[in-house]
Design a protein around this nucleic acid. Sequence first.
DNA 1: CACCATGTTCCTTG
DNA 2: CCAAGGAACATGGT
Length: 286
Amino acid sequence: MPELPEVEVLVRHLAPRIKGKTIRAVEVRRARTIAPSSERQMRKALLGTTFNTLTRRGKYLLFNLRKAGTAEPIKLIGHLGMTGRIYLVPKDAQLPKHAPVVFELEDCRMIFEDTRYFGKMTLDPAPLDKLGPEPMGTEFTADYLALAVRDSRQPIKVRLMDQALVAGIGNIYASEALFQAGISPRIPANKLTRIQISRLRQAIQKVLAKAIKLGSSSDLDFAGAGERDGLFYYGGKGDSVNPKAERFLVYDRHGEPCRKCGTPIERIVQAARSTYYCPECQSEGG
DNA sequence: CACCATGTTCCTTG
DNA sequence: CCAAGGAACATGGT
């Protein structure tokens, strides 16, 4: 489920539900998921701590916890990888097939489910140091973006997915933002004009904000059991209520008509990932 | 069987 | 140094 908007929506959903709850037990069912932390370290750091705030940085979740009777803040860092989900279930609920980490809280369990096991749940904050600015934050200006693309001949689509440039844009929203900005994904980053850079920055913010809004207003089933998820989580183009929900403008729409001009959307491969774009609306030049 | 999939990191090749 | 490509991680859907 995981680019910035999906993580943001999850954070907003989960934060009030875990706040004030104490971790009674940590069950690590797959050691690699918590690496480089060890199970012993996790238990020592987390047992008896209480959830305070839950925030987001790029695609990372930051669980801020406190040890009882101390002011010492403890951070648990999560990343959903490709298929990660976090949700609460009753204590007697059956565990899913792929649940690498399970937290026992007082009255429920917090499950980290991750079918493909690309996700992480760890105490190691090192990956956060490499992240660029938040795309919705004040640091992410046209001037910043201009500097960040100036010295690279990489295609702009590939550049946008570099988490050190800006944090949180993945394969879906890179395509979506470039369509919104009317810029071809193939253009070398250093060939963008000032106007295009400015449009791109705006498009990124618009596309992410729109996705967060959609997710926030959807009746999501975070445990992923229901078909309602199709509307927001990747994997569906709608649900039984609204099977043709227009979730994306170009992503996963190869061969389908561009929503602006009707030209069939094209799919190309860049850096081993699918890119979708409209050859008519997204200009190669300035 | 084939190919595809929201991510990150590492390695090789040019 | 950089860019590009591939692979690894691992499971499941079509």
